[in-house]
């Protein structure tokens, strides 16, 4: 591999990884609090991309405004999903909540298929994303530069919210002990609602940037990025926000680099990530940063 392609692939891996990181946050935060794998999260990601698409293509709004509006709308969708589907099964056996999540995921996907159709739509990305920028000997596309920068900014904002604000403190407290937090007078349901909003907003940002990177969107576009991001959350240590970020970058780099080094395996790239997951579960089930989840006896 020449230095040129190496730099290109590295940037490519980092930008893909930063998107996985953005999505992984939503999984890991919800899991940390509710011990629920929010299967619908990958479809929230898709919803975010579609909101942006429609705002730009139909309402002709400027690009930045569309993106921000799409993020806000998606956050609302996340809160609605929590309120309508997950809250009613909060006290049910855990398997009921998981099944509900699978149901919501299938609902969003098929609702998408029914309403906007299965045919991919071309996503109009802003010019700065399409422009090619030279880095040393390599020409790197604007997406590969801007996506990691924007993602890192969002991740920094998230860390600020979680560790420096009152809402963030409530979230951390709920994830440590939901009952005690409730006894302290915190409105736990509202905190969970905010968690869904934040996770969904990040997923929407991820979805929009994903659509800039791969400018074809369809109602099933969330499935693979979603599962790989969940894999990233597990690899990083589920429930751990920093771990999810690390895991995201790791998965993105592994995915791009395996194919770059061994082009013969390109058909297997999705399989490789899931194999990595199984190997990780076998060798280090708690992830890179995770501590074993001890149930209270």
């Amino acid at each position: 591999m020449t230095l040129e392609t190496f730099i290109q692939q590295l940037m490519n891996g980092i930008s893909l990884g930063s998107l996985y990181a953005l999505i992984a946050i939503g999984y890991t935060m919800v899991y940390g609090i509710l011990r629920l794998i929010n299967f619908a999260h990958s479809d929230i990601f898709m919803v975010g991309a579609y909101f942006a698409f429609f705002l730009v293509a139909i309402f002709r709004l400027p690009w930045g405004v569309s993106a921000i509006l799409a993020i806000i709308l998606t956050a609302l969708v996340g809160m609605i999903v929590d309120r309508a589907a997950y809250r009613p099964v909060r006290n049910a056996p855990r398997i009921s909540a998981l099944i509900t999540a699978v149901g919501v995921s299938f609902f969003l996907e098929n609702l998408g298929l029914v309403t906007v159709g299965a045919r991919p739509k071309a996503f109009q990305r802003p010019d700065i994303m399409a422009r090619v920028i030279p880095i040393g000997p390599a020409a790197v596309s604007g997406v590969s530069i801007w996506v990691p920068i924007l993602s890192l900014a969002l991740l920094a904002l998230l860390l600020f919210i979680v560790y420096r604000t009152k809402v963030g403190m409530a979230m951390r407290s709920v994830s440590t002990d939901i009952e005690t937090t409730r006894l302290m007078g915190v409105d736990v349901d509202r905190v969970i609602s905010y968690t869904f909003a934040i996770g969904s907003a990040l997923a929407a940002a991820g979805g929009i940037m994903w659509a800039c990177k791969y400018p074809q969107i369809n109602p099933l576009m969330g499935i693979y990025p979603g599962w790989k991001a969940f894999t990233a959350a597990v690899v990083g240590g589920i429930g751990n926000i920093t771990g999810a970020m690390l895991g995201g970058f790791l998965i993105g780099l592994v995915e791009i680099m395996t194919v770059a080094v061994l082009p013969g395996l390109s058909g297997y790239r999705d399989g490789i990530i899931f194999t990595l997951l199984l190997v990780f579960l076998l060798l280090r089930p708690t992830g890179i940063l995770g501590e074993p989840l001890k149930e209270k006896v």
Partner: peptide, 10 residues
Amino acid sequence: RLRGDYLAIA
């Protein structure tokens, strides 16, 4: 090998 919901994703 571990308690939790890893079965679903695996």
